[in-house]
């Protein structure tokens, strides 16, 4: 009888631990840290834009949902609500300039505001191409 009680208590404790682990590490797992994550691709900004323009479907499959490091000279830095967006413009279209738009992680906002528009390398999560721009989220400064 005592043995069965011990087994029962052990199973209950294991169940509680399993539930905690699932809640903590599966259901509530944190978002990926794109700043420290290794880049899947390192590429010149202009080349990335050219790939999307020449074959959007192939480029979307290759780069969409990936962490990418791009190097290039931005043309402007836009502010929208609390977001800072580094813009690499390569063409003019219906929506104005077209190119790559990197929305920076908020922790980089002050640093980005003070940056000259020189050659730089940024890393971010590529969400795809919306007919005018390649969109990056969670951008960070590499150099």
């Amino acid at each position: 009888m005592k043995t069965w009680i011990t087994i029962g208590i052990g199973l209950v404790i294991m169940g509680i631990i399993a539930a905690f682990v699932v809640y903590k590490f599966v259901y509530n797992k944190p978002h990926p840290d794109y700043e420290t994550k290794d880049a899947d691709f390192k590429i010149e900004a202009q080349q990335l834009f050219s790939e999307f323009k020449s074959n959007e479907n192939a480029a979307s499959l290759k780069y969409g949902g990936k962490v990418i490091e791009i190097t290039g000279k931005p043309s402007s830095i836009e502010e929208a609500d609390s977001m800072l967006i580094v813009v690499f413009a390569f063409e003019e279209g219906m929506f104005g300039s077209e190119g790559i738009r990197v929305t920076m992680l908020a922790k980089f906002n002050d640093q980005v505001k003070g940056l000259p528009l020189d050659n730089m390398t940024l890393k971010g999560f590529c969400t795809g191409f919306n007919d005018t721009d390649i969109i990056f989220e969670k951008g960070s400064i590499v150099k």
Binding site: N28, K29, P30, G65, T127, G128, I135
Partner: peptide, 12 residues
């Protein structure tokens, strides 16, 4: 709208 640009509170 780019679908991958939707952000959720929970990563899962």
């Amino acid at each position: 709208i780019l679908i991958k640009s939707f952000e959720f509170e929970k990563a899962l």
